[in-house]
Design a protein around this nucleic acid. Sequence first.
DNA 1: CCTATGTATGTTATAAGATAACATGTCAAG
DNA 2: CTTGACATGTTATCTTATAACATACATAGG
Lengths: 177, 177
Amino acid sequence: MAQPKPHVHSDDCPGCHAAPEVAFARHDHSHCADDVLARAEALAAAQGARLTPVRRRVLEILLEEHRALGAYDVLQRLAAEGFGNQPPVAYRALDFLVENGLAHRIRRLNAFAACMHPGEAHAPAFLICRACNHVAEAPAATVRAELDGAAEALGFLIERSNIEALGLCPACRSAGE
Amino acid sequence: MAQPKPHVHSDDCPGCHAAPEVAFARHDHSHCADDVLARAEALAAAQGARLTPVRRRVLEILLEEHRALGAYDVLQRLAAEGFGNQPPVAYRALDFLVENGLAHRIRRLNAFAACMHPGEAHAPAFLICRACNHVAEAPAATVRAELDGAAEALGFLIERSNIEALGLCPACRSAGE
DNA sequence: CCTATGTATGTTATAAGATAACATGTCAAG
DNA sequence: CTTGACATGTTATCTTATAACATACATAGG
């Protein structure tokens, strides 16, 4: 129970593909979400973090789509389901998820998105489609390496960073502007 | 008047150095600010953008320090000087400056900082010192090249992006913690 | 000169995002 | 079964941002 559950890869699982364009590709999203949720649960258990009902529900809500939701959007959902209806309820759950690597905060949108790669140590760049609002995590190891280098050249020590891009996803791009 | 004023380089002017660690180095800031302001004026003229009194004043305020100011901080200053005292006054001026490349929005801080390199087409990464709150623009051409590449690999077309890092500047770093 | 037009500024009001502070509940270790 | 740590709930407030409308100001055309 303390070991992260081994994740069985398969061709059916978009989350398993090396390429992380999942968010922008047509796929079996319930599988996708279930998979992430299972990994998140295992990860939380392994870390001794308590994935309580509210927190779990918030993660599920975020997982419903590859989009980012505002805290108040989440709150509305929670309230409708009998959880607390005050902002701190949503913010606390969201903060928990972010701190435990189960969700990301998208500053450009004042919103939050489920992490699609929980546990796979990563510090992604976020690609936000301005047309369909989908958000994807792009692998950003090399980007961050460059950034760390640029900072180090100035004697600056980076502790946390956020890289976000706004533009058009493949689908909206070909859908013509 | 339509040509950007040629900028005379000198060893005294930190803004002239290739290395952009200016924000984190001790320097003659009034020179630094005056210089940027002059270039901003020339640039605005060249672009046909009207650097009106409020807008100019906001830029001056931002230029007083290498820090980012919230819209309401700016507004307070403006109000004290006889300009309007309602949020849109500050937001409009700030938006103008951002759109014309004279200031940057730092999303992580919900704040704005003067651009220290107006006109020199750039899309910097921001280095934010969590100890002294100074903000510097790091050259990010290579970082952005990597980012564009990563996005392109997913078929995503980046239109705008923000790269921000939080950490410790050289001074605060050696000041221990 | 003056007036129509576009742009800038000012004001009112409110929306949207976030947190401080405190009360209550829950669960597991001692 | 009680204590302590953590989680949830609630009240109130704060900060950030924008919509909508009114007024002034510059300037190009008549």
